[in-house]
Each structure stands twice: as C-alpha cells, then as structure tokens.
Nucleic acid binder design. Structure first.
Lengths: 218, 218
DNA sequence: CAGGAAATTTAGTTTAGTCTAAAAGTTTCA
DNA sequence: TGAAACTTTTAGACTAAACTAAATTTCCTG
C-alpha cells in the first residue's frame, strides 16, 4: 500500500511527463510546492520501490508499474469529480480540492461501484478521459463544437478550462453532460450555430462553440 | 484543522463516553489498538487544544468543543455509510472500513450536499441516528415496537396499560427495562418481529409488538 | 573552455505520531 | 494498612516526510 504522499508524487510525475519524458527535480518541486531536496528524497524512495527510473542529476521517469499506479489515482480523481458535479451539483472550480482528498481513499470495490453508479462515464466534467481499471485511456475523440460541420452529432463531455460561467449557463438551460447535440445549421455571417439538444432547438454564439467539448463518432 | 489521528481519538472518546463519563487511558488504547503511552501523549495534546478535560491518572472527558467535533465526524461517517449502502449497493457489513476513511474528508459543503442528495436521512443503515450540522442528535421519544422499521433500535421502557402478563413473559425471558432492542426482520405475512436483545435473537408476535414501549431517537 | 549560475544532492534538523521500557501512582484485599 | 497487581505516565527512540544550509554536479555563456 502506498502513502498519500507517494501517490501525490506519482500523479505529479504522470502529469509532468506529458511535457517531457524525463522530469526535472525542480519542476516536481514547483508542481507539488515543495523544496527540491524533499523531492530528491522521495524519488529515491520511489526508485527503491521500482515506481520510477531515477538517475542522479539526470531526471526521472515513471516505470510501467508507477504509471499504472498514477493512472489508477487519476481514474479515482476523475470519477470523484464526476460524482461531485453530476450527483451533488457542485460547480467546477470547487471540485478539484475535494477530489484531491477523495482520490486517496483505498477500496477497489468502492471505485468500481462508483463507476457503475455514474454509468461508466468516459470523461470527467472537464472533458478529461477517465482511465479504466487497467489504466487504459480510451483514445479520445474529443472536439470543440465549433469544429463540427452541419448535421454532425456529438455528446457533451465538458467545457474548456476557465469557463465556469459557460457551465452555469448550460445549467440554467438545463443542459447536462452526456446530452446529445446535433448541428442543424451554421450561420456563416457571425459563426452562430443552431443546434438541437434534447429535442429543443437552440442558438449558440461562436464563443460558446469555441468552449464546448463534445465526444464525436467519426 | 485537526489531523486524522486527532479526529480518531475524539470519536473514540465520544463512543467510550457512552459507557462512563470519565474514560480510562487504557480503554482508549484498546479501542484504537494503540499503546497507552501513545494515548497519554495525544490526550495532552487534545487538552492543550481544549478538546478534552484531561487529568493525570484520573481519566478524560470530552469538552463541549471536543464533543462537537466528534459529532461532526460521526455525522460524516453515518452519511457516508448511508451513501455506500443506499446509492452504491454495498452490504452493511462492508461499509465501515470505507466510511472510516471517508469521514476524514475535509469539506463542509461536501457533507451538506451529500446530506441533501441522500434526502436528509435521520438514521444510517445500522439504525444509528445521524447528528445534524450543529451536532445535535434528535431527542429520543417513545414508540411502540410495532412502529419500528427494520434495523431501527430502541431501549425498552415499559409495556402498555393492562398487560401485566406481558411483563411476566419478559421477566421469564430475562428481559429487563433498559435493554436495547434492534429489529432484525419483520415478517410481512403475520407481523411477527425478529429482534435482537442482549445478543439473543428473539421472535415477537404482533400482539407483543403492539404493547411494548421503547425509547427511540427520531 | 573556464567560471559563474542554475539545478540537484547531501547532511543534518524538525514535527507528528507512534513505540518500548521503566518509573510512578492507584487500587485491591488479605 | 501495606504489598502486589494494575493503570498511567515519563523518558527516550524510531519513522515518514517535510525543511534549511551547504556541497556537488551540470549547464551555459563570454
């Protein structure tokens, strides 16, 4: 069993590895708001447990085993965020800190039951994909509404970062994650989209379309 | 903000205080599976923070402030247990260990939203009452056994007028006033109650249930 | 390519929460 | 009432995970 702290490091490593294969000690320290010397200590410990490939002064990368653990934490984080938004009605900005705590709860069974309860979602409310139990992330087929053409369809999976007000607008319009969208018409003049959602015809400004994330089928 | 460990001690104190006002160091150690010396250390710390009234060699009691914290943790524990059983479909035997972790998640708002999501339940799946945000447990009142539902609990306070023979039956069965009763099962067909009293499983006819008075929590 | 700047590691310290062993206080009962 | 038994506290040590300060390595630039 891994400590909360170990889990935080593995998750940080995973996120930072998106940027570059080998991750600097200092960037981990920045990310986790810790001192580089503390990071060095923990990296040695994680290397000991074969979670990372650590080489003095040369940076660190996740091992296969470490990556799996990281993905399982990310899975938990995203499932909990989905729960908080979809079931408890939290708004966006609020969920991260809470999910950061919930992701460390230890119980395989809990997370599988939660997943089922949420209807096995593929994306969290930020539109980030939710890894499966084996740590696999389904290839994303994610697009912005503005990228769609007339008659194309998609399922709302989220909104781009920093657009909390769009979320509350959608909420007010009674539009939820998972709702289907079909592009009926695109007004060339101002980029407005006429779409159908839940059998209702709606008009979305260009700005909305630039921030609304969909999963598409093509 | 209190540590997980501090919260565990306060909760233990609360439960042990049901038995006797001043709680022994050793009984806390037993309850938490720690050594008495560790308990002494923590009690001093909690006394420093005014959560407990600790007197060397004389036992410990919760202060008003400590009791409130304990009740808020118990509230969280019981709400999460309710969630696990009602929403995720766990059996009640399985939920305790998970709720023990979830009860330490820090977020007022989370717990209020969870409470609302569950429909503001008054009892958890074990029939234990859920304290409100202010730590109040609703005042107990009297009911007939027949008014109870499965898993609810009560304390025997008497029998209805004119049923002396019921009293002597109880006496013969070695059941006394003040004994706790828990409804295990209600047989729909004939209204028979299967109950647990003093760790014994007993069957009560509908007529007995119509005449046995209990003190309950709601 | 030398030397300073930046990054990283090492060494030693701190804190919270636990432990063991021993000392001190309390209770019990012959 | 006093000695044994039990309870509790004290003293000192350990571990995980952080820190600071100093030493070391690597990088970059003139």
């Amino acid at each position: 069993m891994n400590s909360q702290s170990e889990e935080d490091y593995l998750k940080a490593l995973y996120h930072l590895q998106m940027e570059s294969i080998r991750v600097n000690t200092n960037s981990i320290a920045d990310y986790l708001k810790m001192k580089p010397s503390s990071v060095t200590d923990m990296l040695k410990k994680l290397a000991e447990k074969n979670y990372v490939n650590y080489q003095k002064y040369k940076g660190t990368s996740l091992s296969k085993k470490g990556k799996l653990v990281a993905l399982q934490i990310i899975r938990k984080h995203r499932l909990w965020e989905t729960f908080l938004v979809e079931k408890l009605g939290f708004g966006w900005g609020q969920v991260h800190l809470i999910a950061e705590q919930l992701e460390h709860i230890k119980s395989e069974e809990l997370i599988e039951k939660l997943d089922a309860f949420l209807g096995n979602p593929k994306y969290d409310p930020h539109g980030d994909p939710i890894p499966n139990e084996k740590g696999r992330i389904e290839k994303m087929n994610q697009k912005l509404l503005i990228e769609l053409k007339q008659n194309q369809k998609g399922i709302i999976t989220g909104v781009k970062r920093g657009t909390a007000s769009l979320l509350s607008y959608l909420d007010k319009e009674n539009i939820k994650l998972g709702d289907g969208v079909k592009v009926l018409e695109i007004i060339e003049f101002d980029g407005t989209f006429i779409v159908e959602i839940n059998k209702r015809k709606l008009t979305f400004s260009e700005k909305i379309c630039q921030n609304l994330l969909l999963e598409t089928y093509d």
